[in-house]
Amino acid sequence: MKFQTILAAAAASTAVVGVAQAETYKIGITQNNVGVDSYQTTYEQAFVDAANANDRVEAVVLDAGGDVARQIAQMENLIQQGVDAIIIWPTNGEAVIPAVRKAKQADIPVVVTNSNIDEKGFDFISSFSGPDNIAQGATAAEVMCDRFKALGIADEAQIVEITGQPGYTTAIERSDGFTERLPEICPNVELVDSQPGDWNREKAQTVMEAFLTKYDDIDGVYAGDDNMGVGGLNAAMAAGREGITFVGATNFAVGYEAMANGDYWGSIYQSPVDDARAALETAVDILDGVDVPFLNYFETPAITQDNMGEFTKPVF
């Protein structure tokens, strides 16, 4: 593990819903890969800040560094510590299921954050806290289609897709939401190719360079997040390929800036601060005996060049 942060907590004395007196909880979190992008870095800091501000919480904060085996070991370590609840941001939505099952068998509630596990593991978790990634993909398709209609090319446009990390639930769901919704609203738009960018701007730029070499006609690019979307945009600008509509998700600062410059059309606005706070609040509510939705989504609206003035520039 890269590091472990322990936040000391003192027992509170006021009564709360479901218990006679406020309890102090030890809550562990194992994250996907803090260093991979600014969203995850901001999420971690927001989680630490939220836990530090809550005198009922002692937090054990771990990072799997994108390594499934390391995350499984971290899950087992948290179980051995006897934490009251575990929050997991899965490195792989299927591979972590056995570790999540072990937590369930140890009577430790598990909250999945940001990117859900495979449905085969749903019986072993208490709640998912995060964005509705399928809905995000569908919304991105609507943003793309509306743009093509405004440009008068909805009957002939060709697009390519840059997805996230293979096997990663968020990547799968955003792609599924987009590719299922687009034919319903723009049936003549053709998705000619899809390749993973692994949430990495440089890799996405390389993927886009290959697309530009392979296809003479590209009207749009859908990227699983703005980090990859801007990588694709950089490749297009370097190649002198203008007039391509870029739509992403998780509106990063670089995506917001590219929209302000008129180079990037739209995205889905998502806050890592809200994401982190929601995960911690969900875990505390479960421990307090409060009923929470099994799929505990927070709002992620569409943002385009037309309405971006309604949103503040992301800090990540």
Score class of each variant (00 low, 15 high):
residue 71 Q to L: 06
residue 145 C to W: 09
residue 84 D to P: 09
residue 117 I to K: 08
residue 157 A to P: 02
residue 184 E to T: 13
residue 215 Y to I: 07
residue 286 I to E: 00
residue 230 V to G: 03
residue 259 M to K: 01
residue 283 A to V: 05
residue 168 Y to K: 02
residue 307 N to R: 03
residue 51 A to V: 02
residue 15 A to T: 12
residue 16 V to S: 11
residue 202 E to V: 09
residue 231 G to V: 06
residue 221 V to F: 00
residue 185 I to T: 04
residue 105 Q to C: 05
residue 66 G to Q: 01
residue 18 G to P: 05
residue 195 Q to V: 14
residue 115 S to N: 12
residue 254 V to Q: 14
residue 146 D to G: 14
residue 31 Q to K: 13
residue 192 V to E: 03
residue 201 R to F: 04
residue 159 I to R: 04
residue 117 I to V: 13
residue 308 M to H: 02
residue 30 T to Q: 10
residue 246 F to Q: 05
residue 35 G to D: 08
residue 215 Y to C: 09
residue 277 R to K: 14
residue 41 T to Y: 04
residue 25 Y to V: 03
residue 94 E to M: 13
residue 243 G to F: 01
residue 205 Q to P: 07
residue 145 C to M: 11
residue 111 V to W: 05
residue 219 D to I: 02
residue 226 D to V: 09
residue 123 D to Y: 07
residue 42 T to F: 11
residue 121 G to L: 08
residue 277 R to M: 06
residue 136 Q to G: 15
residue 15 A to D: 13
residue 216 D to Y: 07
residue 234 N to D: 13
residue 288 D to K: 02
residue 306 D to R: 03
residue 305 Q to S: 11
residue 78 L to K: 04
residue 107 D to Q: 14
residue 199 W to N: 02
residue 291 D to H: 08
residue 286 I to N: 05
residue 209 E to Y: 00
residue 31 Q to S: 11
residue 255 G to M: 01
residue 17 V to N: 12
residue 208 M to H: 00
residue 197 G to E: 10
residue 284 V to S: 10
residue 260 A to P: 06
residue 233 L to Y: 04
residue 210 A to N: 15
residue 189 V to I: 11
residue 72 I to G: 00
residue 171 A to R: 02
residue 144 M to A: 09
residue 89 W to F: 14
residue 205 Q to G: 14
residue 87 I to E: 05
residue 9 A to C: 13
residue 211 F to T: 06
residue 252 F to R: 05
residue 235 A to K: 08
residue 254 V to Y: 06
residue 123 D to E: 15
residue 252 F to N: 03
residue 217 D to L: 10
residue 302 A to L: 05
residue 8 A to P: 12
residue 283 A to M: 01
residue 298 F to S: 04
residue 86 I to H: 00
residue 312 T to P: 07
residue 177 G to K: 02
